[in-house]
Write a protein that binds this DNA or RNA. Sequence first.
DNA 1: AAGATCATCCAAAACGTTTTGGGTGTCAAC
DNA 2: GTTGACACCCAAAACGTTTTGGATGATCTT
Lengths: 336, 336
Amino acid sequence: MANLKQLAQSLGLSITTVSRALDGYSDVSAATRQRVREAADKAGYRPNASARRLRKQRAELVAVTLPSEPGHIGPLHFLDMLSGCAEHLAGAGLNLVIAPVPHGESELDMCRRFVDGRRVDAMLLVRTKRQDERVEFLQSRGFPFVTNGRTESAIQHPFIDGDGFSGFHAATLRFHQAGHRRIAHVGGPQDYFFAHVRRQGWEAAMSECGLSPDLYSEQMPTEQGGYEAALALLARSDRPTAIVCATDEMATGVLRALREVDGGQSISVVGHDDLPIGAFTSPALSTMRMTGGNLGRSFASLLLRTIAGEPAEALQELHSIEFVDRDSHHLPTILA
Amino acid sequence: MANLKQLAQSLGLSITTVSRALDGYSDVSAATRQRVREAADKAGYRPNASARRLRKQRAELVAVTLPSEPGHIGPLHFLDMLSGCAEHLAGAGLNLVIAPVPHGESELDMCRRFVDGRRVDAMLLVRTKRQDERVEFLQSRGFPFVTNGRTESAIQHPFIDGDGFSGFHAATLRFHQAGHRRIAHVGGPQDYFFAHVRRQGWEAAMSECGLSPDLYSEQMPTEQGGYEAALALLARSDRPTAIVCATDEMATGVLRALREVDGGQSISVVGHDDLPIGAFTSPALSTMRMTGGNLGRSFASLLLRTIAGEPAEALQELHSIEFVDRDSHHLPTILA
DNA sequence: AAGATCATCCAAAACGTTTTGGGTGTCAAC
DNA sequence: GTTGACACCCAAAACGTTTTGGATGATCTT
């Protein structure tokens, strides 16, 4: 119930002085500053957020869009990442709002609502497409944002991404060095940047090895999608001996298909994302993941810095990929 | 960039009229209403959120606290629930902010910040304790909130909860009817309401069957906690033949312990929550879950109604528990 | 033709904060 | 004893909206 006016009145001071005392300005004497602070503590005073936001022209809010399309979102334990991000943003006085796209509305409409209504100071986009209309819109508005995943936008923007090309390139080479020759790729929709670049990594490695990137099946990035992709590959006469999957979720579907098919167990599988579920599949799923510590904190930091106006070029993080070897891949078949 | 003043000026109308036209008041003629709406659309005008919030004395925000303590949060796929909740809140013009408790701050401090700073219109609390200081604080402030899980508060408050007592009671009876006599319970910290009530359900069923509720082990509600609890139970001379676990996460730890011990595979296990991971453990985890459709929507509805001032008694949902039978429990040992 | 009713519009206040641009009094310097 | 310099304080404006309480004519009633 306490506001600045009441606090000022009870102290016999002006609103201005109370405000500046609490903000620690030097033009209020140490004595009154002390007196004001004590009174504020006692009254449990906190500045009214809406009023400050209006006056300072900052929403003190960041929105993260939650995709409505099926399939898991990249980083392992997405909620943990959001939680970490929210915590670090809170340290700077910002809160994180989650913004699922409402039924019958596009992600673009949603961005528009947030931007034009000045509801937030920045946006965090996940699951970027190669041509991402949200990115284009925010860039046209000059609105701060950070993406999880790159795009093919001509204009630079802040992002954090894993180096999917190198990861899938290395995974494919590793299989090749272990003696595999029929190495398949189960890919996701190619309009997603991550899916495209992972496929390219696989293709590049294949052609470096003199193999044709032929064993390819594309599906939705879901368990069911992986299952169907695997069935398609297994029906071929040149059945693969190893399958590199665009995501762990697809890989679990692939494993399901392999369990249902004769000799399926001997086929190697590797996924990407290091979903917690991977440790429990049978066989336990070998996978890859982005390196780099507290992802949430990194996003928070990038968001704050882009709000502060730092140039996009300084706010781009491309992390390397590391392997998480479990039981679903067989390397020692030849091994030198 | 467009605000009401500029829009009004360009239309040759007053700010009042433009505002009321957009809000659909009847004291502006259909003609000018039309004219104003078109101009607003063309300019992409959206009312400044901070200004409206200040004027209307509503934050248009709801916060959900994310517990920092380890262990998974109840409902299956918590993020999906939040997403559904956020979507339905958005339909009423409210956004959902996620509020992890910052390092070195208590959940209570966090509530205080949100409430006293009028940063939100309501709070959503998860993982309630039997005596929950957050609940007491919010009640003392008369601040709207909804909990996921009941408390022992003397004053009523809105909640959604599963009927853990009946669920664990039924699960225990079911084991008894199948011939089990040494039925253990792996419980969580008893200051959590859910953990306490689940234990009580087990205890009640045991004593109804003339069995002493002796095979009990309590641990943190984590995989590791379940593992340790199971080890303790397995070390006993009256080793259990069935284990009812407070949560799926603990149950996966129990399964790990059983895999490491002679004859462990023959011991029945059932969990609670229906975590996605349960389908992939070996054996696949039998579990229980709360009935009731779109949980997120229910939370959103309760939040909106408590903000609107409906009495707490009308805003309490106790959902029954249903079994999800998979492979980790063995009922047919005797079976009539 | 005066009064009442109605349809349409608007000026000004209010929400609670931060910031601008001084104002007042004291003290030291000249 | 005037001039700065300094320390401390404050009135008022501003942020952009919603809402209150009319004002102005036009139309209808009697």
